[in-house]
């Protein structure tokens, strides 16, 4: 296990390196520069000065080495779109906001999704199954920004129970969490149902049934446990997305999170911010992926990590 983990960390470092190179090249391939030219073009001198100020006039390789050197020392630079703070400072003020919202959404989505999935699977082809499936289908068919707008119109404008948006009080969580949780809940429900049906037809469940175990025992001890594998695979990648924020939900509910920067940094050619965001997501994702792999071994002991059959 220790050797496996070491290997994984080496892998993560390689991933970081490749991600940084790929993104660095991609973002510098986008036409246009980071300066403001909203009305009339800047003078060439002003542009040149701007480029010099941020070292953008140097060869790409040099820029990359310089950036990574600084990054390794913990200096991620200054975001072009918000030069009064550092990239680190910006992420420190916005990420916790997005993360808390994302975790709240997961806390709602996973238990509810599991419940719906189990109900649908154990009562297959009954009205309960259909109702549960319909609920989860809703989560996957209506874009969350549409749900968000509906929620505002209903709860803020019509019923006046909640403010239309904002941040800082517990009730500011309600609408964004509901809008965010729908899709992962639906996904959980759907995969749970599918996997349970799949697993319950397999030999060992039939054996268990033959052994005379009760339905509930089979469900908790065998079926559910085995049904979790595909679920982990599918749900894992959702988590980094959720806890790093989403532009649509955050902008509709005025949540001062990280989400919008994924878009504005690209639209504004904010190179330091693009790099930082990608490295951040790479870290979050690597951690989640590692946990996912470890979870596989827990729910299915037959999965042996890092060992091939031969």
């Amino acid at each position: 296990m220790a050797r496996y983990l070491l290997g994984r960390f080496a892998g993560i470092l390689i991933v970081f390196f490749i991600v940084s190179v790929v993104v660095f090249l991609l973002m510098h391939a986008i036409p246009g520069g980071p300066y403001n030219e909203d009305k009339v073009p800047l003078s060439p001198e002003a542009k040149a000065n701007y480029m010099r100020k941020y070292g953008l006039d140097r060869p790409l390789v040099e820029q990359y080495v310089l950036y990574m050197g600084n990054a390794l020392r913990g200096d991620f630079g200054v975001p072009f779109q918000s030069p009064t703070e550092t990239v680190t400072g910006l992420i420190a003020r916005t990420w916790p906001v997005s993360a808390s919202l994302g975790f709240a959404a997961l806390l709602v989505a996973i238990p509810l999704g599991l419940l719906l999935g189990i109900i649908a699977a154990t009562r297959q082809n009954t009205w309960l199954d259909y109702a549960a499936s319909a609920t989860s289908t809703l989560g996957l068919t209506v874009p969350n920004f549409v749900v968000a707008v509906w929620l505002v119109l209903l709860f803020a404008v019509q019923l006046k129970w909640l403010p239309t948006g904002g941040w800082g009080e517990w009730y500011h969580y309600i609408m964004p969490v509901v809008a965010l949780a729908l899709a992962p809940m639906a996904l959980t429900a759907r995969y749970t149902r599918t996997s349970i049906l799949e697993v319950s037809r397999s030999d060992f469940i039939r054996t268990a049934r033959a052994k005379g175990l009760s339905g509930r025992q089979i469900m908790t001890r065998h079926t559910l446990r085995n049904a979790l594998i595909p679920l982990i695979t599918v749900l894992g990648p959702q988590i980094p997305n959720l806890i790093t924020g989403t532009i649509f939900i955050e902008s509709i509910f005025r949540v001062p999170g990280l989400g919008k920067f994924f878009v504005t940094s690209i639209l504004g050619r904010d190179y330091p911010m693009i790099m930082a965001l990608l490295l951040l997501v790479a870290v979050v994702w690597s951690v989640v992926y590692l946990i996912t792999d470890i979870l596989y071994t827990i729910v299915d002991p037959r999965v042996r990590l890092g060992k091939s059959k031969s």
Binding site: V152, A156, G165, E250, S251, I252, R254, K260
Partner: peptide, 13 residues
């Protein structure tokens, strides 16, 4: 107010 579409709702509220 993030989205322009939310201006009137916020105003009405």
């Amino acid at each position: 107010i993030g989205q322009p579409s939310q201006l009137l709702p916020a105003y009405e509220a």
